[in-house]
Design a protein around this nucleic acid. Structure first.
Lengths: 317, 317
DNA sequence: TCTCTGCCATCACAGAGGCTGATGCCATGA
DNA sequence: TCATGGCATCAGCCTCTGTGATGGCAGAGA
């Protein structure tokens, strides 16, 4: 049993198909077929049941999957450890982030990282969670941060942090900048929301439903930046994670309103390929991202706390 | 980095030499040399410092050793698990035991094992600890039980149990069968003891020294069975682990005397190759051996407890 | 029921990579 | 200074693995 076989096995298990796994590994279907056959012969048992639409793991296969992922991860971690025992942080790093982060906190993280570790070759991929999840699972990204929950084989999932949902409207409206808005009020507004199927949309709809509400008028749009632009020049409002709104704290183009009754939050997950370990470069990026996110969160905590005061000094209407 | 390289690395680390590792792996020195070179090039660092008398691991090498042993062990365990998910216990099993065990408790263990698992091909190697340790380290044995402490790279060491040291004399002497003997009395007897360097001999000498004693007359002999024979037909006494004396509990040929003031004990260690996992056959053998040893130990506990009574009913002299 | 499609198994062949055995070089110790 | 033991290197071989083509099978849709 060798490591090639082991990673082939893992890929097939995750893809549920020899052909797709071959594609992902840049190998051939027949090659994988032979590898699995060899493993099965050696072990004297079947690892996959072959069906007409792919393969499903046997009990033995499921058992092996856990062990294999663990072993490959350990080995990768060891290799990274060794390679960096006495080396500067360097190498390629591919990170997947949602617009929330790229707009909200990426810039300082980036300049900080580049200043400290100029030898890191960085690629940041901006995208929505479904895309990022697939790219991480395919090993194309070192890690990504996406909304929890994530359930996909082949991913190592870890809690990353929390964010608050904020109502965003164009500046100059009836409600003062930073004055809170109750969910019941929001339901009667004209809203731009992400498409159904998007994790945040489902989460929002559930929150409305829990309060017995249904948003009256919605425009569905899976494009946060475009949404922000649109909101700034129309009477539509939208609901966005606090982090992405950091740039609007000044209240120049958009006014922000913490959502209350109830407050809504998003949990983020850090996802990485299950068999790979974090490189020092990835760790360096992540540390800074965590810090930046925590700072942003702290800022919003203050704002939520000061909300009533703001309302008093700038009375609504 | 593949598994062949990893096991080559482990063997070299343990042997401290490419040549010796090659011998152990039934490979060639040049082959190992190339494998390590490839690993080193890949990692961009040196794993071994080459000296004229062999190799010593670098810091990176020492680090990798721990990880490599762990990975190989996990993989072996997984393979064994899988292979036996739905199979009867079978396969070859090589076990190393000291005469203590082969004479003391092996027979019932064996017949029990063979009855339950007829497909196990068993080889029992009888030998002293140094030999067994080497054989286990070389991967020739699935496991062995030897006196603690054991310090040798490449071994997984686990406590196995304890045994008591017993004074053995020919039958019909002045001291009643099973009557205790104090260490001070023993020091003045003619004793057959294992050779210096043997773990038990060193342990015994230390015990004497702690009580300010020096054995007066000793015959050095590293052969337990021969010692037992010799003691039965001479006025020499010897000190042996209780387990080996089980057959003499009847008192026909030899009389046994628990040692007191102080009581002496031996600790046994179960050793197995660090990178290999216990096969079900090995586990089955071990379970039975543990039980047999525990029963023997319990029997001796009773005897120690009843010692004074025995002395009263059969007054000394 | 028939066909079409997608998937996996098998095979012969080509390629790569690792292993071997010989040789060379170096350090050590007598 | 020489003998010894140990590792590095090299050319060639050989094994083993992956490739690409082909075939068979099962399910989905008409």
């Amino acid at each position: 049993m060798n490591l090639r076989q082991l990673s082939a096995f893992v890929a097939i298990h995750e893809e549920g198909s020899f052909s797709r796994a071959a594609e992902r590994l840049a190998a051939t279907q027949s090659g994988l077929s032979m590898q699995i056959r060899n493993m099965e012969e050696r072990l004297g048992l079947r690892l996959f049941e072959r069906t007409a639409r792919g393969v499903t793991p046997t009990e033995a296969g499921r058992h092996l999957y856990g062990v294999a992922v663990d072993i490959l991860h350990r080995l990768d971690a060891a290799e990274i450890d060794l390679r960096n025992l006495s080396k500067i942080v360097s190498g390629p790093l591919a990170v997947g982030l949602m617009p929330t982060f790229t707009r909200g906190v990426l810039a300082p993280v980036l300049s900080d990282l580049i200043a400290d570790h100029p030898d890191v070759t960085l690629r940041v991929i901006e995208g929505y969670s479904a895309l990022l999840v697939e790219m991480v699972a395919a090993g194309e990204l070192d890690f990504a941060v996406v909304p929890h929950p994530v359930t996909r084989e082949g991913l190592r999932v870890e809690a990353f942090g929390r964010d608050r949902e904020i109502l965003v409207m164009r500046a100059g409206g009836a409600r003062a900048h930073l004055a809170p808005a109750a969910l019941a009020e929001i339901a009667s507004m004209k809203l731009v929301l992400p498409l159904r199927g998007n994790a945040r949309r489902d989460r929002l709809e559930a929150a409305f439903a829990e309060s017995g509400l249904v948003p009256e008028a919605t425009l569905d749009m899976d494009a946060m930046i475009a949404t922000l632009d649109f909101v700034a020049r129309s009477d539509y409002a939208t609901i966005l994670p606090a982090t992405i709104c950091t740039a609007d704290l000044g209240g120049a183009e958009r006014w922000l309103h913490p959502i209350v009754d109830p407050a809504l939050s998003v949990n983020y997950a850090l996802i990485s390929p299950a068999t790979r370990a974090m490189s020092p470069a990835a760790r360096a990026f992540l540390d800074r991202l965590r810090i930046a996110h925590a700072e942003s969160d702290a800022r919003w905590t203050r704002i939520f706390a000061e909300g009533p005061a703001a309302r008093r000094s700038q009375p609504k209407n």
